[in-house]
């Protein structure tokens, strides 16, 4: 996920190391190639093809399906996300801050009710819990989106009309041209052999 995915106009300003690599291939019309996308009709064939792509050593590729496929993690050789750890740390800190807020405000403006000491922790428990939950929920949603590099309304795949059926009933494997193992012909052969009903070049417009 690079900043230039969002703001391509910035790439000229960035130092060389941070610039996106120049496209290696171009389509017959002259646009850079973003990758190859293969279409499949059912879960079993896309999973089988996915396993062959994984075993061929590709790293910059993805499997698109209208719903989460059970076992896609193994098919793609994905590592488990660190999201729960992040949410846990953020949530516990928020709960702690909730406690700190109540403690400080109760000391700062002591209200004498029920004859209890102003810093007693017991009545703070509900709000400690609520602040932890509230911030954890934000952390889970925002963390999920940002680890996914979303929101990102533009992506080369959206220019490929058949891909719009990924939200309906079709399955796709997309291999980026930036993958070190990418080769227009060999990658296409791999996907065709994997049982794709069609394989297309995706242009980076």
């Amino acid at each position: 996920m690079a900043i230039t995915d969002y703001f391509p106009m910035l790439s000229g300003l960035l130092p060389k190391q941070l610039r996106p690599p120049a496209p290696r291939y171009a389509t017959p019309s002259g646009s850079p190639v973003a990758g190859l996308v293969a279409e499949f009709g059912d879960v079993s064939s896309v999973c089988r093809a996915g396993e062959s792509v994984r075993d061929a050593g590709y790293t910059k590729w993805d499997l698109h399906s209208p719903f989460p496929i059970h076992g896609a993690e193994q098919v793609m050789g994905m590592k488990r996300t660190k999201l729960p750890l992040a949410v846990g740390v953020i949530g516990l800190s928020a709960a702690g801050l909730g406690w700190l807020m109540q403690w400080w405000m109760s000391i700062n403006y002591p209200i004498v009710v029920q004859g209890k000491p102003p810093h007693a922790w017991q009545p703070f428990v509900p709000i400690i819990f609520e602040s932890g939950v509230l911030i954890s929920a934000f952390a889970a949603l925002i963390g999920m989106l940002s680890l996914n590099g979303l929101p990102r309304p533009h992506h080369p795949l959206f220019n490929h009309e058949p891909f719009l059926d990924a939200s309906n009933d079709r399955f796709f494997i997309y291999i980026e041209a930036l993958d070190p193992k990418f080769d227009p012909q060999k990658t296409r052969d791999l996907l065709t052999k994997g049982g794709a009903s069609r394989v297309d070049l995706v242009e980076d417009l």
Binding site: L63, S65, E73
Partner: peptide
């Protein structure tokens, strides 16, 4: 949010 039904996204989505 530009959801593109990616399995890498689905994985984090299900965890979230």
């Amino acid at each position: 949010m530009g959801w593109r039904f990616s399995s890498r996204h689905w994985h984090r989505y299900e965890v979230a």
